[in-house]
Design a protein around this nucleic acid. Structure first.
Length: 554
RNA sequence: UGUCCGAUGGUGUAACUGGCAACACGCCUGAUUUUGAUUCAGGAAAGUCCAGGUUCGAGCCCUGGUCGGACAACCA
């Protein structure tokens, strides 16, 4: 297999940088702000940054971009670290922008001394006005011409806490008429008398993103600083600071962020969902957060596979969630243990099976995995099958049970429906069937071929469990326009809890690390809320298109 | 009125220095199947935003348009 996988544009750049000797090895970084939980969009970035370093023999730093104390918390730091490890990646160094506060301060002083930064007393409104518009040049601040000495003193005083929030800022002296708005004397430092999750009250001035990110990259000798498209206009400023500070020339590259159908992928909106109580928390199984999909049963491997499949480019994209679900099923099919579970029970009595008799049949744990072994399944005279698996007046292509028809009970016998019992309202309450003794699974000598195979549980040994069926949180495919208040787009049926679902006894072996396929319904995993006497399962994904053909043909 | 980024089947991503537009998801057909799943075989679907140009030859190069997105937080 010499087949070469085509390179994405970043791999091409790195390939070239390595070939030409620009770098001996590469260093990337994953730079989350600890102001929320990681989501699928971050997974794309993580797989990209860590994956690139892995493939090219480099390393990746985890750096928390914690330059805004009012939004950041230690809880988020911990969850982020946990999620990255869970995804299967290990960072070379754990760093914080806040580690560089002293260094960044020195950088700022250096720029003041080079007459490339000044303290501005203007209000934020005044500064906004000075900036002009994308089509009109800005105007100089009246404080732009302060002397170096004066700026030095004022900046020292800012740090010393002599001013209130918003009273003064430090601005870069760039070009107020630059076509790029970000070059119009951007703010480098602002005053915030706020408690920082790591530096506590040591500082009351904090660097802005633009004055922290590039320098942090430079300090760490990051060779390829990869971020999303919206930072393209920042690149010029990124380079400007690096050039004027004469530090390591890290370079910024941009790629298009992940968008998925029926999914919001903005931290701001996810926070809103949490705060307004539309979901139970950041790890609600309907959330696109890593903690959410983990709780729902998605595997790290399937997410990595997904990130690989969606590729990397610079054009805007909207990925169908179906692709993610495909990746999840692909992995789960290989590892999930098979169990029979009946959601809406319909009683079946096998009239020719002796009363009081029972036997233990066996079934494969997982037919896709030869080493998975077998499980025991008790069989007896009274069973439950899925109501959906019986139709009194079946359409043409219906292969399951109907009056006078035969089906196989998975891993057991072929049965024939002889009689339908209804209550006063005409509702079917019980089926009387006969079984074919020679048709026992594994030793079938009956010669009978049936097309339908259904799942079942023995009434005497069935275990009641609780099942949580999760559907899409949103009703609309593209939430691009769903700004601000997206209550209108929420799907009220996104969560369906079913109690007293009946499962075969093997369900008792349930383990939180295992994945299950409930035969013919979908993939499930044990929810952390489960206890020994109350097993709760979350539905990961449904089985693919189980009834699609039938629906189409009817 | 500006600057920057982008445009390839329904979706996403490819196509080495110009050389028969490929792969995956989805869709359709058939086979196998004690899960209507899985697996397997096959198929439909774009002629590459438009108009010119260079060339034996353009998705790739040139010129001019069109459309979409980003940019005016003391957020990142």
């Amino acid at each position: 297999m010499t087949e070469e996988k085509s390179l994405n544009f970043l791999e091409e750049i790195i390939d070239n940088d390595l070939k030409t000797g620009k770098y001996k090895s590469i260093i990337t970084r994953f730079p989350p702000e600890p102001n929320g939980y990681l989501h699928m969009g971050h997974a794309k970035s993580i797989c990209l940054n860590f994956g690139l370093a892995l493939n090219y023999g480099g390393k990746t730093n985890l750096r928390f971009d914690d330059t805004n104390p009012v939004t950041e918390e230690t809880e988020y730091v911990e969850s982020i670290k946990h999620d990255i490890k869970w995804l299967g990646f290990q960072w070379a160094e754990e760093l914080y922008a806040s580690d560089y506060f002293e260094k960044l301060y020195e950088f700022a002083v250096l720029l003041i001394k080079k007459n490339l930064a000044y303290v501005d007393d203007s209000t934020s409104e005044e500064i906004a006005k000075q900036k002009g518009t994308p089509t009109q040049p800005g105007t100089d601040s009246p404080f732009r011409s302060r002397t170096i000495e004066e700026n030095l003193t004022l900046f020292t005083d800012m740090r010393a806490g002599k001013y209130k929030d918003g009273e003064k800022v430090l601005r870069a002296k760039a070009d107020m008429s630059h076509v790029n708005m970000h070059m119009r004397d951007p703010i480098m430092y602002r005053i915030k008398h706020a408690h920082h999750h790591r530096t506590g009250d040591a500082w009351c001035i904090y660097p802005m993103y633009d004055f922290a990110h590039g320098q942090s990259d430079a300090i760490e000798n990051i060779t390829h600083s990869i971020c999303t498209l919206e930072f393209i206009p920042h690149r010029e400023l990124y380079d400007w600071f690096i050039k004027n500070l004469e530090i390591y020339p890290s370079h910024q590259y941009e790629f298009a962020r992940l968008n998925m159908t029926y999914t919001v992928m903005s931290k701001r909106k996810l926070l809103q969902l949490v705060n307004e109580g539309h979901v139970s928390g950041w790890d609600d199984p309907r959330m696109p957060t890593l903690s959410g999909v983990r709780r729902r049963g998605y595997t790290p491997k399937s997410i990595r596979e997904f990130c690989d499949k969606i590729g990397v480019a610079k054009r805007e994209n909207l990925i169908d969630v179906g692709l993610l679900e495909f990746c999840v099923r692909e992995d789960l099919n290989k590892i999930a243990l098979r169990r029979m579970v009946v959601f809406d029970p319909l009683k079946v009595v096998i009239t020719n099976y002796p009363e009081g008799k029972s036997e233990v049949l066996t079934g494969e744990e997982n037919p896709e995995d030869a080493n998975s072994g077998i499980r025991e399944i008790p069989f007896s005279r009274e069973l439950y099958i899925e109501q959906e698996d019986f139709m009194e007046n079946p359409p043409k292509k219906y292969f399951r049970l109907a009056p006078g028809q035969m089906v196989r009970l998975k891993s057991a016998y072929i049965i024939k429906c002889d009689e339908v019992i209804k209550d006063a309202n005409g509702k079917v309450t019980e089926l009387r069937c006969s079984y074919i003794p020679e048709s026992r699974s594994g030793s079938d000598t009956s010669g009978i071929n049936v097309k339908g195979v259904i799942h079942w549980v023995s009434a005497a040994t069935a275990v009641p469990i609780e099942v949580r069926l999760y559907d899409r949180l949103f009703k609309v495919e593209d939430l691009g326009e769903a700004e601000g208040d997206f209550k209108d787009y929420l799907n009220p049926e996104s969560l369906l809890v079913k109690t007293n679902v009946l499962a075969e006894p093997a369900i008792h072996k349930a383990n939180k690390d295992d994945r299950y396929q409930f035969l013919r319904t979908g993939y499930f995993c044990l929810d952390p809320d489960s206890t020994a006497d109350k097993l709760i399962f979350n539905r990961t994904v449904t089985l693919r298109d189980m009834w699609a053909k039938e629906a189409k043909k009817n």
